[in-house]
Amino acid sequence: MQYKLVINGKTLKGETTTKAVDAETAEKAFKQYANDNGVDGVWTYDDATKTFTVTE
């Protein structure tokens, strides 16, 4: 399945996608991506759209 990440950071904004077997695996990949880019915020997930959002 394909999952999307929407980033609403202080210095980084945008979107990225990943393919993963489940939401938990996608979340780990997205959190690593956010961490690598210095984004630390509040996470939400919408199962209907398979979209994670992180807001600083």
Rank of each mutant, 00 (worst) to 15 (best):
I7T: 03
D47H: 11
D36E: 11
T53S: 06
T49V: 06
T51Y: 03
V6G: 02
T11R: 09
K13D: 05
K50E: 03
T51P: 00
T49A: 07
A26W: 01
T18C: 13
D47E: 14
A20V: 04
A48I: 11
A23E: 07
V6A: 04
T17L: 09
T18I: 15
K10F: 12
A20C: 07
Y33C: 04
G38L: 06
E15Y: 12
V21H: 12
K31L: 08
G38I: 04
N37T: 07
N8E: 09
K19R: 14
G41V: 02
G41T: 02
V54H: 01
K28W: 09
T44D: 09
A48E: 13
L5G: 01
T18W: 06
G38P: 02
G41S: 02
G9V: 14
N35D: 11
V39K: 02
T17Y: 15
K28H: 09
K13N: 09
E15R: 07
N37D: 03
T18Q: 07
E15I: 12
N35C: 12
V54W: 02
G14R: 12
T44E: 10
L5Y: 01
F52R: 00
T16G: 05
T11Y: 14
W43A: 00
N35Q: 14
G38M: 07
N35P: 01
G9I: 12
G41P: 01
V21A: 12
D47P: 14
T25E: 13
A29Q: 13
A34Q: 02
L5N: 01
T55W: 10
A34T: 08
D47R: 08
K31N: 04
V54E: 00
K50M: 10
A20D: 03
A20S: 06
Y45P: 00
G9T: 15
K28C: 06
V21W: 13
D40I: 14
T17Q: 09
Y45Q: 01
D36M: 11
D36R: 08
V6W: 05
A23D: 05
T49D: 04
Y3G: 01
E15F: 12
F30I: 02
K31P: 00
F30Q: 00
G9P: 03
T11V: 11
K19C: 14
K19I: 15
M1F: 14
T11M: 11
T44K: 06
V21N: 13
D22Q: 04
G14P: 05
Q32I: 11
M1Y: 14
L12W: 14
T49M: 06
Y3M: 02
T49L: 08
V21I: 13
K50V: 04
A34M: 07
Y3L: 01
T25D: 09
